[in-house]
Design a protein around this nucleic acid. Structure first.
Lengths: 220, 220
DNA sequence: CCGGCTTCGCAAACGGTGGTCGCGAACGAG
DNA sequence: CTCGTTCGCGACCACCGTTTGCGAAGCCGG
């Protein structure tokens, strides 16, 4: 009695064959999300994208949430894993930068991976690659998996910040108000040097976090 | 023309006085969320909690999302900030552990802080405290704010993992399947020592990440 | 070639959602 | 007491996720 989408057989063994496939529906949903955002991914909208009825989708998917899981795994298939070079730190950073590219192509992914980090076939590939890169590292498996979780969360958070237009404006507006109010002296004392667009802060942050999280000399 | 909730005056200056207050409504919404989860926080449900009509809430709040922002800031008021001791690392870890307590009291908070990290008055207090603890630290302001963001994301992610029952089960089910399949050798080779419930991994992880992110010798 | 079994595709329907609107009632200011 | 303004409310809109019943479609055994 499998409950995971990826363990449930896609098509029935007998009877009339289905006209569409799970990945076809997933691709349509991804197209809708890329175009109009995650909240536009309604069953009716995706069905319309495929020229079919809304109820039909439930022949392929048990729930809307399941469809979102499928979408997330679908786009994590966009990684192009390179063979480990022997420098685990740079390998992990390179993979994380690929993750950021994926997030840039699919802005809706960040919210999903943060709130419902499900794992499908492509997610398993990512875990496998991560563990392969760290194969020689003395840390124990738990620490390695924690590192992967932290990496994913961090990249998603940075990606979110990149295209958070409205929210950031409102937040900056309020923080400016607080700074001007005079309470909160340390906030008032903040100076904001114009961020250098040529300098990418993410690799540095990741290197620092990873060296803290996976010290080369000890596994615990 | 303020757009942030916290800059918009709560009550009109003239006319019939409002019967309820913004914080009253926020408290009711928090009560509903604590009891039945974030998805139960509908305008009708919150209105019923207050014994009023659904449309009435829009006199106090522009949108449901705004109400969720108010809820998040409401519960970040539960911090009890201690004066800096001089040991910034331990001060930050202690604050993060308070954050985890808040997350444990309000499980719906994690999703919110990860996907829509808005900042209100109590959020400003947190920023202020964070900067006060790091006042003597040589890192520049940008790095300190990044550290706060990373800290919040990490604690929220850990808190999410603590009460993610269903999802974790399904995920574990699928990962076990992958491990048994034999592809993905590193996943198959994973050994899962039973986690020691007496040992809390969060402080260690935070210390490692923070020492990586805020090295004592350099500000960049 | 056909009959039967099973699944498919679909449209209608259900309960619920966020949000809008117009109106009568309530209140403070003058 | 009157006026100006806001409040509380309930009906209403469009849409949502999901269920259900049914006719049509397709493969399999004969």
């Amino acid at each position: 009695m499998p409950t995971s989408v990826w363990l449930r057989p896609e098509r029935a063994a007998v009877g009339r064959p289905a006209r569409r496939s799970r990945s076809e529906i997933t691709a349509a949903a991804v197209a809708v999300a890329d175009r109009d955002g995650a909240e536009a991914v309604s069953m009716r909208r995706v069905a319309a994208e495929l020229g079919t009825g809304a109820g039909t989708l439930y022949r392929y998917v048990e729930t809307r949430d399941e469809l979102l899981d499928l979408m997330a795994d679908h786009v994590t298939g966009e990684y192009a894993f390179a063979a480990p070079t022997g420098d685990w730190l740079e390998d992990l950073v390179a993979t994380a930068l690929q993750a950021r590219d994926i997030h840039r192509r699919h802005p809706w992914l960040a919210d999903r991976v943060l709130t419902a980090p499900g794992t499908g076939p492509h997610g398993a590939d990512l875990v496998e690659h991560h563990l392969a890169v760290l194969a020689e590292h003395p840390a124990d498996d738990g620490a390695k998996l924690v590192a992967l979780g932290v990496l994913s969360a961090l990249v998603a958070t940075f990606a979110r910040a990149e295209h958070a237009g409205r929210d950031l404006e409102r937040n900056a507006e309020y923080m400016a108000h607080v700074a001007a109010a005079g309470t909160h002296p340390h906030i008032s004392a903040l100076d904001a040097p114009p961020p250098d667009p040529a300098h990418d802060p993410l690799p540095d942050v990741l290197r620092r976090v990873l060296t803290g999280l996976l010290p080369i000399d000890s596994g615990s």
